[in-house]
Amino acid sequence: MTKKPLNKKSSNLTKKQMMEAYEKMLLIRRFEEKAGQSYGLGKIGGFCHLYIGQEAVVVGLQMCIEKKDQVITTYRDHGHMLACGMNPNGVMSELYGRIDGYSKGKGGSMHMFSKDSNFFGGHGIVGASVPLGTGLAFSNKYKNNNAVTLTYFGDGAANQGQVYESFNMAKLWNLPCIYIIENNRYAMGTSVQRSSAQKDLSQRGVSFGIDGEQVDGMNIESVIEAGKRAVQKTRSNEGPYILEMLTYRYRGHSMSDPAQYRSRDEVKEVRDFSDPIENLKNKIISKKFSTEEEIKKINTEIKNIVDLSAEFAAESPFPPADELFKDIYI
C-alpha cells in the first residue's frame, strides 16, 4: 500500500459546479451562523455543534454521489443535512425543538434523519456512526443495488475501537463504504497530536488492507477530485476506502466551549488564508464565472432562506404533549 500525497491539484470544475458548490457552502455557513445566534438568544438549547469552516468537505463529497447513496454522520450534522438536500426550515425547526422539525422536536441538533434524502443521522455517541454506516453499506451489498455509503466521523472517533471492528468486517466482506474522517484537529479540546499515536489518520486502515489518502478538506476542488475517485473505486466493487479530510472548525466544539486549547491566531490564520468559501469565491471571480455583484445577490438570497427558516421555526408550535409517548414503538 502506498501512501498517496496530499492532493492539491485543481480539478477544473465547470462554472455550474463551482456556483453550486459556492451556494451550498454559503447556505451551510449562514445557516450555522444563524443557529449560533439563535443559541445565544436561548432559542436553541442543549448541545449545538456548528460546522463552520468544514463546509467544503460535505458539499464536495455530496457532489460525487448519486441519489441512491446513503450518508450517515455523528453529531456535527447540520451541514450534512443541508448538503443532502434537507429543508432548512425543517432543520431549524428541529433545532428550535418544534413540531415541524425533522424529528418533531424530539431529536434536536444531534438527531435528525431523512429517509427521502437518504440521510441516516445524526448520532450522538462518538464512533457509533461507523458500524452503523458499515451496516448501511452491508445492506447495499445484500440488496446488490450498487449504492455506496458515505460514513463520516471525526478525528476523535477515529480512536474508538468499534471503528476498527468495522474496518475489519468492511474489508472482509468487501462492503461499499467510504469512511470520511473529518480531521478538524481537535477532539473536543484534545488535539490529534495529544490523542493519536498514528497521526496520519488516512493510514488507520493499513492493518485491514484498506487504502486511504489525506485530502485538503478546505479546498472544494481537492475534495471533489478525491471523492469522485473514491466513489468510483468503491462502486466498482473494490471495497471500502478512507478519505481523511484535513479541515478546521472555526467555532468551539459546541456552543459552550471557550476553545482555550488553541490560539486566536491559529483560528485567524485558517480563516484568512484557507477559508473554503472565500477561496472559491475568488476563483469564481478570477475565472469570470460570476461577478461581485452576482455573488452579492446570491448572498442576499441565501440570507433570506436562512432568515425565513428561523422565522418558520419560531412560529412552529411546540410538540403537543401526546408526542411524549409517541414513536417509542411502531
Partner: peptide, 26 residues
C-alpha cells in the same frame, strides 16, 4: 453464506452493523 453470516468476535462492531442494515430495511 450471504444470509447466514459468521462474524469476527467483535460484538460492538457487528451489532452496530446489523442495526445499520436494519435502518435500510433489512
Amino acid at each position: 453464506p450471504s444470509r447466514i453470516i459468521d462474524t469476527p468476535i467483535t460484538e460492538n462492531g457487528f451489532t452496530g452493523i446489523a442495526i445499520g442494515a436494519s435502518f435500510s430495511g433489512l
